[in-house]
């Protein structure tokens, strides 16, 4: 395995070893069986780490109620990343027009109308509105894994448009939520270090759009609301984020009217493991064939 960092070499190696299967759109690809096995084994290792917390496990489809993203300011903050589902609702005449344009490969977007669905941008978004009302005395803890969409077409293999994130979401009082976020930052570092990945934690911000977005990002950093665990995968200078830890203060509590048992607006935090990126970091660090990985690494995953 080369120690050189290169987006192209990593992409080509992943394709050559059958780990990813190109489909003709940057940032979208299939996954081979070995890649999936590593991903599922890591996912299971995270679940083992969290077992004693007894989180409530829930599943959602990779589509979400558009109103949830509008209310939570996601589309406003990240219009460049959002994916809204549009579909055809016209009559036969409009269909004839559509058929003609499809045949001629001409633009046809204006013949579609917006639906009530968006592609889920983060696994945790469908969770918050389910807690409208009053939380139990100890708050709530949710375990959710899902496919997410970000409109970021790129040839760089770790920058995907569709990928899976295993998230945990904590809702409760400020003290409980912040302590939980800090605990998981240490857990996240520990599990990735146990896999022989040269990771470190750093302060981070989200890619908010535009000038207003630069101010939101600066606010986020100033208040230390987002941390990431990063690892060199395609560059040593700009390491790739493998997990992120986000404290939302009372943002979702206010928007979705979530109260603590004592009637205060609840705080929330979430953390997510970017599953594909972690598999790529492992393949880059230890080699394209997991049978040849160091024994301690295999012992964590093949436990």
């Amino acid at each position: 395995m080369t120690t050189e960092f290169s987006s192209k070499i990593l992409y080509d190696d992943l394709v050559k070893f059958g780990h990813i299967i190109p489909v003709g759109v940057p940032g979208i690809f299939g996954r081979g069986a070995v890649f999936e096995e590593i991903l599922n084994r890591f996912d299971a290792a995270v679940s083992r780490l969290a077992a004693s917390d007894h989180a409530t496990k829930v599943h959602f489809p990779p589509c979400i109620n558009r109103q949830v993203l509008q209310k939570s300011m996601y589309i406003d903050s990240f219009p460049q990343l959002s994916g809204t589902v549009f579909s055809f609702t016209g009559n036969d005449a409009a269909h004839r027009e559509l058929s003609s344009r499809l045949k001629d490969d001409k633009p046809w977007g204006d013949l579609q109308t917006m639906t009530d669905c968006c592609l889920t941008p983060a696994a945790c978004y469908p969770v918050y509105p389910t807690f409208t009302g009053t939380l139990p005395p100890n708050g709530a803890l949710v375990d959710v894994q899902n496919w997410v969409f970000r409109h970021e077409p790129s040839e760089e293999p770790t920058r995907m448009q569709a990928f899976r994130v295993h998230e945990y979401v904590r809702l409760g009082t400020t003290d409980v939520v912040v302590a939980w976020r800090d605990l998981w930052l240490q857990r996240g570092l520990k599990i990735l270090l146990s896999l022989g990945l040269p990771v470190k934690a750093e302060l981070a911000s989200d890619p908010f759009f535009g000038r207003g977005g630069r101010m939101l990002a600066a606010n986020q950093r100033e208040q230390k609301l987002k941390f990431e665990v990063v690892c060199p995968v395609i560059s040593s200078e700009k390491p790739t984020a493998l997990c992120s830890f986000n404290y939302h203060q009372d943002k979702f509590g206010t928007i979705f009217n979530i109260k603590t048992s004592t009637g205060e607006t609840a705080d929330t935090a979430c953390l997510g493991f970017g599953l594909e990126r972690i598999v790529m970091a492992l393949l880059k660090t230890h080699g394209m064939d997991p049978d040849s990985w160091p024994k301690p690494v295999r012992e964590v995953l093949w436990a």
Partner: peptide, 11 residues
Amino acid sequence: MTSHASVNVML
């Protein structure tokens, strides 16, 4: 004042 509101104030 939320972070989003402060952006609107700035603009």
